[in-house]
Amino acid sequence: MLREIRPAIVLLLVLTAITGLAYPLAMTAIAGTLFPVQAQGSLIEKDGKVVGSALIGQEFKDDKYFHGRPSATVAPDPNDSSKTVPAPYNAANSGGSNLGPTSKALADRLKDDVDKLKVENPNAAVPVDLVTTSASGLDPDISPEAAQFQVPLVAKARHMSEEQLRQLVSANTKGRLLGLLGEPRVNVLALNLALDQVAAK
């Protein structure tokens, strides 16, 4: 019986070593060599300190910064572990809200968010990505229209000209990949870092 089982055990150990150790280590080494920034999480540094990642959004509450999309991620309620509380951009709990188009809770939140944004900029239509969450809840990008919509509020908070901010948004807008794939987008963290740099001058 041992004669029949031994090849299966040997094959299991060999495949485990190849697929569980050798392959992941080789891919990690190759990624670290060919794509060192991406392999480390696409981290963004400012003055030698890591301030975020180009791949994960952050919550900006101050009016002097551009804001990203709403985030649907949650975390356990510290007061009641059977409940959850909002935890924007919680990378440990990526996911959407799972609220469908007939959800009253979603409709109420959207209406409230649109009403708040209309107060900030009453003369412009509210871009859809400023009130809807992404599938992951971690999207770091917004549309150029969403960034331009926020220009009057940020300009007022920073005492800067709207034209200067519009140029900054344009300079930080990335186009479609290869001119075909995806949509034009603005990374909110990169835009806010560029904004701080311009304001410092």
Results as ranks from 00 to 15, higher is better:
Leu34Glu: 01
Thr19His: 11
Ser170Met: 09
Leu2Ile: 15
Ala72Asn: 07
Thr73Val: 02
Phe149Thr: 03
Leu2Val: 15
Thr133Glu: 11
Ala157Asp: 04
Lys174Tyr: 03
Pro70Gly: 05
Ala8Ser: 01
Ala39Ser: 13
Asn172Arg: 03
Pro24Glu: 03
Val74Pro: 05
Pro140Glu: 08
Ile5His: 02
Ala194Leu: 01
Ile5Lys: 11
Pro86Cys: 03
Lys111Ile: 01
Met27Leu: 14
Ala194Met: 05
Ala8Cys: 11
Leu181Lys: 10
Glu163Val: 09
Gly41Ala: 09
Leu11Asp: 03
Leu15Tyr: 08
Gly175His: 04
Thr73Gly: 05
Pro76Asp: 15
Val169Phe: 00
Lys104Asp: 09
Gly96Gln: 00
Ala72Ser: 11
Ala87Thr: 06
Glu59Phe: 06
Gly179Asn: 01
Leu43Val: 12
Ala190Arg: 12
Asn172Met: 00
Arg109His: 13
Asp129Trp: 04
Ser42Asp: 13
His67Ala: 15
Leu110Ile: 13
Pro86Tyr: 00
Ala199Phe: 11
Lys46Trp: 00
Pro152Thr: 02
Ala22Phe: 14
Ala8Tyr: 07
Asp63Trp: 00
Ala124His: 09
Lys118Leu: 06
Leu117Pro: 01
Gly95Thr: 06
Leu181Cys: 09
Ala146Leu: 06
Arg158His: 07
Ala105Ser: 11
Gln197Asp: 12
Ile44Cys: 02
Met160Ser: 13
Ser82Phe: 10
Leu189Glu: 03
Gly100Arg: 11
Pro152Glu: 03
Ser42Cys: 08
Gly41Gln: 05
Arg3Gln: 10
Val85Trp: 08
Ala87Arg: 04
Ala190Pro: 07
Leu2Ala: 15
Leu99Ile: 10
Met160Gln: 13
Ala87Asp: 07
Pro152Tyr: 01
Ala146Lys: 08
Gly41Trp: 00
Thr102Gln: 15
Gly68Trp: 03
Gly137Glu: 03
Glu4Thr: 12
Thr28Arg: 09
Ile56Asp: 05
Val119His: 06
Asn79His: 06
Asn187Gln: 09
Gln164Tyr: 02
Leu193Ile: 03
Ile44Thr: 10
Arg109Asp: 15
Val131Lys: 01
Thr28Phe: 10
Ser134Lys: 03
Gly95Asn: 06
Gly68Ile: 03
Thr19Ile: 12
Asp139Glu: 14
Lys111Val: 07
Asp113Glu: 15
Lys116Asn: 12
Thr28Glu: 14
